[in-house]
């Protein structure tokens, strides 16, 4: 699969995952890499970029064992972006399905 396309999809997946529950970085990476065949090392920079674009905010939570964890939480801007991505993705998937199913005349 084209790398840029994959990165775009991962970006959307990261937003979606964190929208469901606040997650720490390693958790996001592990969750995505279990589902999608992707280099783990490409996920963190995406996470970081999304944070710089203010789609996430972070907070730390102390743990009973070990160092405190940095959690990512979706911001309002992030929610809007995710919604936009979902709409675009839905349209894209429907179009692709039509073509692959031979529905397009």
């Amino acid at each position: 699969m084209n790398t840029q396309f994959k990165k775009g999809v991962i970006e959307m997946c990261v937003l979606k995952l964190v929208s469901q529950k606040d997650m720490y970085g390693f958790e996001v990476i592990e969750t995505i890499s279990k589902e999608i065949d992707v280099n783990e090392n490409t996920i963190y920079p995406i996470l970081r970029r999304l944070m710089k674009q203010e789609f996430f905010e972070t907070y730390t939570e102390s743990m009973s064992i070990g160092a405190p964890r940095k959690y990512y939480r979706l911001t309002e801007l992030g929610k809007e972006q995710l919604k936009e991505y979902e709409n675009e993705w839905g349209t894209f998937i429907r179009s692709v399905s039509k073509i692959l199913g031979g529905i397009v005349s």
Partner: peptide, 24 residues
């Protein structure tokens, strides 16, 4: 963040060469 991810992989008993390959 990288320190944290490294530690998480170590906690999974992954060897350092594999960890560095995962982190890039």
């Amino acid at each position: 963040d990288y320190d944290d991810m490294y530690e998480n992989y170590l906690a999974q008993e992954m060897n350092e060469s594999d960890i560095e390959s995962k982190l890039g």
